[in-house]
Every structure is written in C-alpha cells, then in structure tokens.
C-alpha cells in the first residue's frame, strides 16, 4: 500500500528526515513512536506533500504509483488522508459546510452521521467555524470526521491522543478502531495512550529523523513506558558503536 524508500527531506536548510524506509501493506496498521521533534510529523507532512517539506532524495510509492512529486490534493484523491496534530483555524467556514463539501454532499450519508453521533459532535459544534475556539478533544474529533468523510485507503493519524481527556480518548479510540476496519494506517503517538483501543501489527521508533528501531508494538510501548525515550537513545548509540 505504502512504500517509502531512502527518503531524505529538508525544511529550509534543516534536514528533518534522513534515510527513512517504511513499508505498510494492505490492511496493516503500524504505530510510530518517538520523542518530540524526532521527525514524526515531518513524515506525515511529507507523505501529504506539504510544500515546505522538500524531498531531496528517495521515493514515496503509494498503490504502486510514485507520488513523491504529486500535488497534495491528488494524493488525497488516490486514497491517502491524515488527521493533523495542529490544524489551522478556518474563520468563516462552518464545520457542517466543510464536511458537506468534503463528502461531496453526502453529509446525510448514514456512516458519516453515525460517526458524528458516536463522537458526540453536536449541532452546535457543526455550526461553529472549523477549529475556532475548539477544545483539544473537539479538534481531534473534527479531524477524524473529516478524514472519515474522505473515505481513504491509507490513514495517517498524527497524535490523535495528545491533549485529549480520558472520556474523549475513549470516544476517539473506539471511533478510530471502527474506522480502521480493513484499512492501512500509520498512527503517530508520543505516549501511546491510543493503543488501549487499537492494536497495530508493527511498531517503529523515530529518532533524529530516522527510523531507528522496528518491532512488536506492545513490547516497544512497555520499554518506552518503563524506561523513556532516553533508553532508546542509549540502545541506538550502543548498536551504532
């Protein structure tokens, strides 16, 4: 489904990803751990084709098509969608109207309505301007429902569990797990709270713009929870020496 080969990416003068390799097969859910600033969000932005993230070497292959230079909206049409960690505010654009346009007027679609209901997105939130004055949980839900409306084959979730209270975490976790049925996904999480609800098949750890480690999600999360990312750092430097 997604294959990333020897990817090097810069933002301005800064190298944010170096030699990233990643492969997600059809129907597989992977999780990407890593400390803040390690390059996790940069990977999402690069897969989406954000204009500030320049691929200087390497390729991104999606469904067998090289999308490395493809405009963002065409990647979306091919079947990629992502929830962003810090989406911008859209003054004057009502969530309801945006969803209607994204789903091509299918807001009345049963599945979408059910998700809106499940996430407890009420009429008031639907009538508000996208992300303007939204709480942390509301932002995550708003991202989730937009991505659902796109009906993608590959989903990227950038920190779906950060800044979310326990109650909303459960709502979001359950909705995500339903959403993911049969789909491919990459879930980025710093703390791993969301893994209470979703069981990925494989985990990766990002460090200094590189995928430093691959393995079993549960084992890795246990290590990180117990020893923190400092432990990973030691492990990596030991391996290198």
């Amino acid at each position: 489904m997604l294959k990333i080969e020897r990817l090097y990416v810069t933002v301005g003068e800064r190298l944010v990803l170096s030699d990233v390799n990643l492969e997600i097969d059809e129907g597989e859910v992977h999780v990407l751990f890593g400390p803040n600033g390690s390059g996790k969000s940069s990977l999402v932005m690069t897969i989406l084709g954000h204009p500030s993230y320049k691929v200087i070497s390497g390729r991104i292959i999606f469904k067998g098509i090289d999308i490395t230079e493809m405009p963002t909206e065409e990647r979306i049409k091919l079947g990629i969608a992502a929830t962003l960690q810090h989406p911008p505010k859209l003054q004057g654009i009502m969530l309801k109207d945006l969803l209607n346009r994204i789903s091509d007027g299918r807001l009345r679609d049963d599945g979408l309505l059910r998700l809106i209901d499940k996430l407890r997105i009420n009429e008031d939130l639907l009538n508000r301007h996208v992300n303007v004055g939204f709480s942390g949980g509301e932002i995550k839900k708003c991202e989730l429902v937009q991505v659902f409306a796109l009906n993608p084959d590959l989903l990227l979730f950038d920190e779906p569990d950060s800044g979310v209270d326990i109650e909303n975490l459960e709502l979001i976790g359950r909705a995500m797990s339903e959403l993911l049925a049969g789909k491919s996904a990459l879930i980025i999480t710093h703390h791993g709270h969301i893994l209470r609800y979703i069981k990925p098949v494989r985990a990766h750890i990002m460090f200094n713009g590189q995928i430093a480690c691959n393995g079993d999600p549960e084992e890795m999360l246990n290590q990180i929870s117990k020893n923190g990312y400092g432990w990973c750092e030691k492990c990596i430097s030991m391996r290198r020496s």
Binding site: E73, I76, A81, A82, L84, P87, P88, I93, R101
Partner: peptide
C-alpha cells in the same frame, strides 16, 4: 495563509477551490 491552503488541499480541495473557500470564509456575515 499557506497553512490554511495546505490544510484544505489535504482534504482534497484543488488550490483554486481552497482559495475561494478561504476568501468566502473571510467575508463571513454570521
């Protein structure tokens, strides 16, 4: 704002569609 344009493009809108949506939002009369 570039970030707003990118955001809408990441939801499948073409650049011109994203621009006109944002301009329209700016002229909000609610």
């Amino acid at each position: 704002a570039e970030e707003q344009l990118f955001y809408l493009r990441s939801r499948g809108f073409r650049l011109d569609e994203a621009e006109s949506l944002l301009v329209r939002g700016f002229l909000d009369i609610s």
